[in-house]
């Protein structure tokens, strides 16, 4: 459990662009062997949601929002030695963002949660062109595909990607998630078989457990 004091200290450093101080907070938490899920949910995810809200309320500029995201992305690197050192379960997943979307951090955190659960995750990053995605699936032959959509207006591109992937790889199970699916978009997914909407990291871990078991 991350204390309010640590959280506020981290957030104020994140908003003022003090990367070194943010790094110190994360390093100290890692030294204390904080569970990675807790770090991701209670620090990285919570602060980024708060940064988003501050931007929406015009309390911070988009530049500050970009800076906070960039700092957080850099801090994920500190966690990788922990994430990648665990035992493997012999399953793999390809994670990608919908084409023309540049917000990748959420999808990346999901890829990391897969790693923590022993899966090998291949993260394709922001703005994944459909062709590149298919090439990766062909090469890695994953057990699962994860697609992230941050903005609601990307829904047509998400549907196009699902259609293309299902045409080429009909057996491949797909999970989708992201802030862009918080509203109506989710209902449009019901028509696809083998596509599951995941709304939180907790639910993702349950799903992985089911797939695994």
């Amino acid at each position: 459990m991350i204390s309010t004091e640590i959280y506020n200290n981290y957030l104020s450093n994140l908003l003022s662009g003090n990367r070194a101080n943010c790094s110190k907070v994360v390093e100290e938490l890692l030294d204390q062997k904080i569970p990675v899920q807790e770090l991701y949910l209670e620090l990285f995810q919570s602060t980024l949601y708060e940064v988003g809200k501050l931007w929406e309320k015009n309390e911070i500029s988009v530049a500050v929002e970009h800076m906070a995201t960039a700092i957080t992305e850099g801090l994920l690197n500190l966690v990788y030695p922990v994430i990648f050192s665990g035992d493997r379960v012999g399953k793999s997943v390809v994670i990608a963002c919908v084409a023309k979307e540049f917000h990748q951090i959420g999808a990346k955190m999901i890829a990391d949660i897969f790693e923590l659960n022993g899966w090998d995750s291949f993260f394709l990053g922001a703005n994944t062109p459909s062709q590149e995605l298919q090439k990766m699936i062909e090469e890695k032959q994953p057990d699962l595909l994860g697609l992230s959509m941050s903005l609601s207006f990307s829904m047509p591109r998400l549907e196009k990607m699902i259609n293309e992937v299902q045409f080429a790889f009909p057996q491949l199970a797909i999970i989708v998630g992201g802030q862009g699916l918080q509203g109506e978009g989710r209902s449009l997914l019901s028509k696809y078989s083998n596509v599951t909407y995941i709304d939180s990291i907790g639910e993702l871990e349950k799903t992985i457990g089911v797939s695994d078991g």
């Binding site: 992305e73 690197n77 990788y80 990648f84 540049f102 990346k108 890829a111 790693e115 090998d120 990053g125």
Partner: peptide
């Protein structure tokens, strides 16, 4: 974009 790519590459390298 460069920052994203650098971070993705770091992730790949760490893995």
């Amino acid at each position: 974009q460069a920052n994203n790519e650098a971070n993705n590459l770091t992730r790949e390298l760490q893995k």
